[in-house]
């Protein structure tokens, strides 16, 4: 009986050259010398559980706001003539009416950016159609090239400069992160409605600040907004409430939905 059993026993592997007995290699099969399930098998199962588990749960653990970069605010150079330093200044004037409409942009589905107007005192005439980024770019490039012709000492723009064909000549970032884009859109949307009443004296206006937290639904609607830090001036605070009420926020990208739902803080400064 004992003999039979021994005959079924798998012989321990031996070294090919020396014929010396080798340690048992398979980690998956049970070690016949010790009996029971292999340690390796247990380790593998645990590892699998860990890997799958981390794939499922880790994103939630790490789904915290990533450090926010400053919104990329592009300002376009006004088309005009440089003025000699010894002349009296010209009055700030609104930009000329938009040029004849250029061919439709190649990506008509792209949302037209909010047109920034200088914080001028005169209401600017609303153009019949908001120019696309490409058109603004062309206008700005035309202005830049004219300026460089008028002033030969000025550095010419680098034709190979890294950037985006829809960027601004004054942009400082080569690429725009998706997060930046969303926050920049929020900034632009609210800033377009950021209007304070002239009854707040200029001296006070210079120092007023307030923080508002907005909670944004996945469809971009504002679920709730509350003052984290009011300014103390009721006219200013009321203007901020109005600005937020009037703003249609962009739809947050999927990866920022939770962040937007948990609240974005808007710090208003003069």
């Amino acid at each position: 009986m004992t003999e039979e059993l021994k005959s079924k026993e798998v012989p321990p592997p031996r070294h090919a050259m020396t014929g010396a007995p080798q340690p048992y290699r398979s980690l998956l099969k049970p070690d016949p010398r010790s009996g029971g399930t292999g340690k390796g098998f247990v380790a593998a199962v645990v590892l699998h559980v860990l890997v799958i588990g981390s794939a499922v749960f880790l994103p939630q653990l790490f789904d915290k706001p990533h450090p926010l970069r400053k919104p990329v605010i592009a300002r376009l150079v006004a088309l005009g003539k440089p003025r000699e330093a010894n002349l009296l200044p010209r009055r700030e004037s609104p930009p000329p009416p938009a040029a004849a409409p250029a061919p439709a942009p190649s990506r008509p589905e792209a949302p037209a950016p909010a047109v920034k107007t200088a914080p001028g005192r005169r209401p600017s005439v609303t153009p019949p159609r908001a120019p696309s980024r490409a058109e603004l770019m062309q206008q700005a490039l035309a202005g830049v090239s004219k300026r460089s012709r008028a002033n030969p000492t000025e550095e010419k723009p680098d034709p190979d400069r890294e950037g985006s064909p829809t960027g601004s000549p004054e942009g400082t970032s080569a690429t725009a992160e998706e997060g930046d884009k969303y926050f920049t859109e929020i900034h632009d949307a609210i800033q377009a409605n950021y209007v304070v009443p002239s009854v707040i004296s200029e001296r006070e206006r210079m120092y007023l600040t307030a923080s508002v937290t907005v909670y944004v639904a996945p469809d971009g609607s504002i679920v709730k907004s509350e003052f984290t830090k009011p300014s103390g001036n009721s006219f200013f605070d009321q203007a901020l409430v109005l600005a937020i009420q009037r703003t249609k926020l962009p739809v947050p990208p999927p990866e920022l939905r939770k962040l937007a739902r948990d609240g974005l803080q808007l710090d208003f400064r003069p």
């Binding site: 915290k64 706001p65 926010l68 400053k70 919104p71 914080p119 005192r121 926050f183 929020i186 900034h187 609210i190 800033q191 950021y194 209007v195 304070v196 009443p197 002239s198 009854v199 206006r205 937290t213 006219f235 203007a239 962040l259 948990d262 609240g263 974005l264 803080q265 808007l266 710090d267 208003f268 400064r269 003069p270």
Partner: peptide
């Protein structure tokens, strides 16, 4: 609670009080 992202908004336009 995780710190909220903060968006600075400046450059208010001044408009007459209706």
């Amino acid at each position: 609670m995780a710190q909220r992202p903060t968006i600075d908004i400046s450059g208010a336009r001044v408009q007459a009080y209706p």
